[in-house]
Amino acid sequence: MKVDIVVDARYKSCPGPLLALAEAVMKASPGQIIMLLATDPAAPRDVKEWASSVGHKVLNIEKVDETYQIYLEVSR
């Protein structure tokens, strides 16, 4: 998957990963793919809730060792 922006929020607790992602989305353009790196176990579910609330698309979530790689497509 082509990733346009990587947001590294590893070792940050809630709400750090979501705030970092939301900040990146504000600066991104529609259609861009962001990969969020997070170790907070609450991050995947929080990101899904947030994305469905504001209308962005979570494309995939992978766990590599202790890190979640969360792929998000910016919709607007």
Partner: peptide
């Protein structure tokens, strides 16, 4: 936790 950046400061959170 706040000074290491693991938890954001309350002001950073509020500003966002």
């Amino acid at each position: 936790a706040i000074s290491s950046g693991a938890i954001p400061s309350w002001l950073e959170v509020l500003e966002q």
